Amino acid sequence: MPVVIPAAELGEFVTALLNTKIPDPDHARTVSDVLLWAARRGVDSHGVARVPRYLELLDSGEANATPELSFSGGPSGVTVLDADRAPGPIALTAAADEAVRRAQAVGIGAVGVRRTVHTGAIGYYTSRIASQGLVGIAFVAGMPNMSYPGVTGAAVATSPLSIAVPTAGSSPVLLDMATAGIALGKIAQYRNAGKTLPEGVAATADGTPTTDPALAKMPLPLGGAKGAGMSLVFELITSVLVGAPIVSSFHSDDPQGRVHRQNALILALDPAAFGDPAAFTEHVSETLAALQGLPSTGEIRYPGQNSAAIASKRAAEGIPVGPKVWGELEVAAEKLGVAVPVTPGG
């Protein structure tokens, strides 16, 4: 059975763990906020289950605990952030905020991100933009870990896409998806639970489809060639655009080609630059109401609505953490000298 921890206590616990590796308390809090955002919304594969991996990345130096973020010059609506191997939550939160500032000034903000490490739940950053009344769009490219039609073995990345659109009075529309049929973190969840994977979502190292999570080494593209093509294009508009190609480097004899890294593109659009922003959000809400008013065989929900409802429930009742993950957190806490929250019956 999972342990259930109040969201605030779990956030403080995760922040304290991260702060033992990340000297800047604001940076530690930022990483914690992104992980807790995912946990609250039921995206457990990107929630506190990732804390042990983040600690490993920081210990090994793959992720830079003391990054020097730097924005390059460029047109008023465009800039590139060199993340200096910062953990993704630190780099992409800074990029999202910069995109908002530029969009509020000139109508659109576009921030390319170079050299970050594990972006976390991409929907957090677009939601952050939408909370300012803007439309948020984000793409990420990373290390090849997914097949491509006709290729044996990993060829492209499970590159995610997110779009968040503000509404008039309800939770934002939030599309948050990968170009794979399943996330690597989800495969791990199936493995930990001893469950069989759905058909057609994962493969062995040589590309043979499998439903055994113990044998699954890489996800298969969502929609076959469609998901693979999206991943390739995301590599072009992120990594290649900022002068930091990953795919071509990975598949070459470049000694740095397989060093873990990710790149991103964060966009913010100000509805005021296109017309009346109040009318825009009203029309968004009208569109959602029209969809949800159609004849149906069940409840109709728009993207992000279900996870927003889970977030409300978990904010009130606490966040469940699986026994395996909780055990890993307890071990890390003992090693790092961090107090563990008291669990029910503990």
Rank of each mutant, 00 (worst) to 15 (best):
G298N: 11
L294R: 15
E299Q: 13
S296Q: 06
G318D: 12
I300A: 08
G304Y: 05
R301Y: 07
R301F: 04
A311E: 12
A308M: 09
R301H: 12
I319C: 07
E317K: 11
Y302H: 07
P323Q: 01
A309E: 14
I319N: 03
A290W: 13
I319S: 03
S307R: 08
E317Y: 03
R301E: 09
S307F: 01
L294N: 01
G293M: 02
G298V: 08
I319L: 03
E317F: 04
L291N: 03
G293Q: 02
K313I: 09
A315V: 01
R314D: 00
A290K: 11
N306H: 14
Q292T: 09
S307H: 01
A311Y: 01
E317T: 09
K313S: 12
I310H: 07
T287H: 13
L291G: 10
A315T: 15
G304P: 05
A311L: 06
G304T: 07
G304A: 07
A308S: 12
I310N: 04
S296A: 15
G318W: 09
G304R: 04
S296D: 07
A311M: 05
R314Q: 06
L288M: 13
V321K: 06
G293V: 01
N306C: 00
A309M: 11
T297V: 12
A309T: 13
V321M: 02
L291T: 04
S312Q: 15
G304E: 02
I310C: 04
A315H: 11
E299K: 13
K313D: 12
T297M: 06
L288A: 07
P295Y: 06
N306W: 14
A308Y: 08
A289V: 08
Q305H: 05
N306S: 11
Y302C: 03
P303E: 05
A309Y: 00
I300Y: 06
P323V: 01
A289I: 04
A290P: 03
K313N: 08
A290M: 13
G318T: 12
G304K: 08
A290Q: 14
Q292R: 05
R301K: 10
A289N: 11
S312R: 15
S296I: 08
I310R: 05
K313G: 01
G293H: 02
G298P: 04
E317R: 12
A316F: 01
Y302R: 01
I319V: 15
S307Q: 08
A316D: 03
K313M: 10
T287R: 10
P303V: 06
S296N: 11
T287A: 15
E299L: 13
T287D: 00
T297R: 14
A316Y: 00
S307G: 00
G298W: 09
V321N: 08
E317G: 02
T297D: 15
R314A: 04
L291C: 09
P303A: 09
A289L: 09
P303R: 04
I310W: 02
G298S: 14
E299Y: 06
I300R: 14
P323I: 00
A289K: 10
Q292M: 08
A316N: 01
G304L: 06
P303G: 08
P295S: 08
G298R: 09
Q305V: 00
I300V: 13
P295N: 09
A316V: 02
N306T: 11
S312H: 11
P320R: 01
G304I: 04
A309Q: 10
G293R: 05
E317M: 07
K313W: 09
P323F: 03
I300C: 02
K313R: 14
A290L: 14
V321R: 02
G318R: 11
